[in-house]
Design a protein around this nucleic acid. Sequence first.
DNA 1: TTGTACGCGTTATCAA
DNA 2: TTGATAACGCGTACAA
Lengths: 333, 333
Amino acid sequence: MPVSIYDIAKEANVSPSTVSRALQDNPHIGAKTKARIQKLAQKMGYIPSAVAQSLVTNKTWTIGVVITTSADPVVAEVVDGIEQVAQDANYAVFLGNSRNDPQREMAVVETFRRRRVDAIIVVASRVGKTYGSLQSQHSVPILVVEPQEHSGYHHSISTDNKGGAMLAVEHLIALGHRKIGYVGAIDRPISNNDRMLGYTTALTQANIPVVLDLISLPYCTDDIERGQMGVTDVLAAKATAVFCYNDRTAIGLMNACGQHGIEVPGMLSVVGFDDIEAATYIKPALTTIRQHLFRLGQAAMQTTLSLINEQDPPDIVLPYNLVVRQSTTVVPS
Amino acid sequence: MPVSIYDIAKEANVSPSTVSRALQDNPHIGAKTKARIQKLAQKMGYIPSAVAQSLVTNKTWTIGVVITTSADPVVAEVVDGIEQVAQDANYAVFLGNSRNDPQREMAVVETFRRRRVDAIIVVASRVGKTYGSLQSQHSVPILVVEPQEHSGYHHSISTDNKGGAMLAVEHLIALGHRKIGYVGAIDRPISNNDRMLGYTTALTQANIPVVLDLISLPYCTDDIERGQMGVTDVLAAKATAVFCYNDRTAIGLMNACGQHGIEVPGMLSVVGFDDIEAATYIKPALTTIRQHLFRLGQAAMQTTLSLINEQDPPDIVLPYNLVVRQSTTVVPS
DNA sequence: TTGTACGCGTTATCAA
DNA sequence: TTGATAACGCGTACAA
């Protein structure tokens, strides 16, 4: 068993409460005894029990992070950002994988509740509305990153999907493309809608008609596969360029292009979304919309801290920008 | 405040201990009251406090996982495996990033101790020996995955680095290569040594002399950069093939090849280690040694469970195999 | 089968 | 400035 303040108290011939005070920044204690106790505690290898502290203060200094899988590089980067801010604020983070299973996701949230986390952050949820009732039922703040359902109950945060998508499509238009396809993710209703909206808006603003055949929404939850499935649709519609829901979709699509003898960017320009590391070293290097996922994670945790402290969350605007690489070029004549 | 067993007891006109018993599998309770209490607890939205339970049982059902960063796909996959087994065994996992900073790593371990985790798993540590003293000092089991320092104090687990490396180099030899380079990771002493040993062993067994000029150990901690730096060394030594410490190193190396006009595999065959997802969609697709990182994580957690239960850890043998793709071919004549 | 009383390690409210 | 004492929510030996 680890040493307790009781052990220290006996050793120092003081009461446990004196020890407790010495170990905090409690003003009601003499400087000399304070120093003496602290030194003794150090020497005895005392490590305070967060468990006992939590029980009495009713605060655990933990947050629960729900993710699908850390194998997704987008998720991993967001988690990294969350963890960094949490660590600096003396919070520890619980990680719980849902593996895309709503039932498991609810189970994870339940264990977080049992553990009395101070807040919950959900990254890339597939569950949705359920959080509404949870939020109203209990008092644990819940923040959803890139929510896939609208709900008035929980807070949320995300990059400007519409703006980013517009930027991507405007880039293609500037290169002379008119037949621009979109391969979307049907299993991510909200962000997909926003990105598709950016796509259509950019087209409309350039007086280019929106052609439904150019829009592919494969019934598929795997990013890579989705791209492989989507490429046949956009090629059938004679697209000269395609904007993909995200980088991994673009990578899957470019992969399929290689198999079909379609040259990128010679015959088809490709733009992604996210700017994961692989975008830089794939051939051809992927033109994409960079969203700073690490900062997204940081912002999520910062917002969570405000929520915990019952302050108004800061209005964080997440940066995004176009990164032009080798997967896009002027329209073939 | 959440409802407690006390609240339920009042509502049901029984004592708190009866409630406690009803909520567990305690035999000393009537079936009817047990059912009644359980239903009532459900209705009142009771969620047991893991904090209070931990305090009295002296067990938290948590484990701490120390990593460098979840942005590393290798780490992410291992963590996924750990989390899965942990979740199935009713353990929650704390995640702590060291960001390659030994001081921060120790701080993370310290917070895990304060939180009274039942065990600690360290993935890809850069700290080393320090865990020895920690382990002997306290009683929390520590397991190091892919340890980078030998120590008799903590347990460890890893794939057979030497065997995997031999397999890789034997593949190149079978393709007729004789001038085979190695680009290693000097910041990962143990695993790098083992892989290098596999490299030299395979050469020696084939009666090929080990040439030091063909071995490059760039002073660099970033995988991608390391590959970019290493390529000049092995090319200067006129290598026709190169085995890289890991996939990301190979990717960086192949990247640099593209810039130097070196054709892969035409002029240089490349083999990696790990088989991360990017290995499948990079061009040319990377021949590599597949180590099942997810299973490595699972095995780590299974071993940890045995450690916690003071059983002898099972002797887990991790599978690995050669995956031949497009980055290797017969030696140019 | 059920209830009483105590303890887990710590903070916090009182007195002294 | 210090020391008793009561919480915090739960498990459990012991008594009823």
